[in-house]
Design a protein around this nucleic acid. Sequence first.
RNA 1: GGCCCCUUCGUCUAGUCAGGCCUAGGACACCAGGUUUUCAUCCUGGCGACAGGGGUUCAAAUCCCCUAGGGGUCACCA
Length: 490
Amino acid sequence: MTRPLRVRIAPSPTGTVHLGLCRTALFNWAYARRFGGTFVLRIEDTDHDRNTQASQQAILDGLRWLGLDWDEGPEQGGPYEPYQQSERVERHLAWAEKLLASGHAYRDFSTPEQLDAWRAEQEGRKQRIAYRGADRDLDLAEAERRAAAGEEYAVRFRIPDGETTFEDLIRGQVTIPHHEIDDWVMVRRGAASPTYNFVVVCDDLDMHISHVFRGEEHLVNTPKQLLLYSALGEPAPEFAHLPLMLGTDRKKLSKRTGDTALGDYQAKGYPREAIFNFLALQGWALDGETDVFSREQFVERFDIRDVAKAGAVFDPDKFLWMAGEYLRGEKPEELAAHVKPFALEAGWMSAQELQERWPWFVRLVASVQERLALYSDLPHWVGHMFQPHAEVPYDPKAEKGARKRERRVELLTGFADALESGAIHGSPAQWAEQTKAWIEAQGAKIPDLFQPLRCALTGMAGGPDLFETLDLLGVPAALERIRAGAQRLA
RNA sequence: GGCCCCUUCGUCUAGUCAGGCCUAGGACACCAGGUUUUCAUCCUGGCGACAGGGGUUCAAAUCCCCUAGGGGUCACCA
């Protein structure tokens, strides 16, 4: 049976935007885009205390930031509104009534205490048995009478005998025996508040979702949902359970072993395309050879059937490498724009000053581009530029190296004189040539001057071409730094 | 513990469905060289895996069985 391809993600707005959600979204999105389907975003905010408006906004913003777009969702709407689960409760309850009437569900009047007692009883058992409600076999009319009398109850699904087998698009055949599945609660006692496993099916049905791609932690929920589809007499969607993203402890990625929130990586200055690309690589590969690819290539090649079965351990090293790969590929203008917030945050100058010196800033950024992996690496390399010239902090390693050069003071002073007098002039490339010739004329080696010079100019042991740096600094400032250096390194 | 899922270099993975093209390919990391005034980039090379055991077959990373290990899940959370 073919029906229109419709996929969705249904995040619950609790806390931060988890990378796992991002990847699930990525795969759903790519599948829809590749095969011409519709990508739906539904907010799973079933009246839980943990749901917050801020979190919902963060999810929307985060996914958009990643470059994902959805065809139907809470803000733009769509043909199956509303896209907030909490606003669909009436529908859910109606489905529940239907199931109650057909006998696929029943009212369970058990109290929480009774349930606790039952659970305690299970503790000791080797073979846990699935819960079957005490009132499972209560006469329907009798149950309705007690309900009408105001007695509180939960609505439970009546799990039939047998087992459920389904075809997972990633894992193949999966079978789970029904005696493992509780008569789970569809609607909570008293509150008329439906539970996740129930509403997810109602909503997917209502929204005509054809494929459900979600994390592996939902694998064991699937039979419950499948049983529900069949009780409702409706066709079930296809399912695929994505391998989990694991922390270095090999457990489900959590804060315990590192940052898990998209926001953490945005704040650290990971390029968006790098995050996108890296996430796509968690459980999937373009061709086994290519690690760096565009989102167009991704969409062109992605198929849920090619997703790996085994969990993927999140490798921060490779992620960092990927970040650098994208960052270094940016155009200087583009990079400068990305790095701007970090420059402002460093407090070197006001936004207005930065605007005025923009061409200079772009050159400055370009000079260190190949040394950066993250946008936030910028201050490390160019921070010295904004220090008082006479007291640029010296890195101990840089200073040590400079002091090894015995003629440092003499050469530094001589070079400053040559620069000031115009003996060294022209473009940075010409300065380099002239300086090298001058060093030779002094009977010295290149590092004899260059090492102390780099220390005096930047205070750092490494960095971009010296003359480029000198040019960026400007001759007057450079002279001040060199003369101060001659004294400080004496 | 029950059930379910998984298992190729330290890590991400290609190859497994259609057994031979695999003396198992790529990438990150690591190590060693080269380039550079330095750091970084870049280039070259190296290290390094089919979880174990049985079978089937002329032939198995690929098919079957068992064992071991890892993970997920066992809520009136989602």
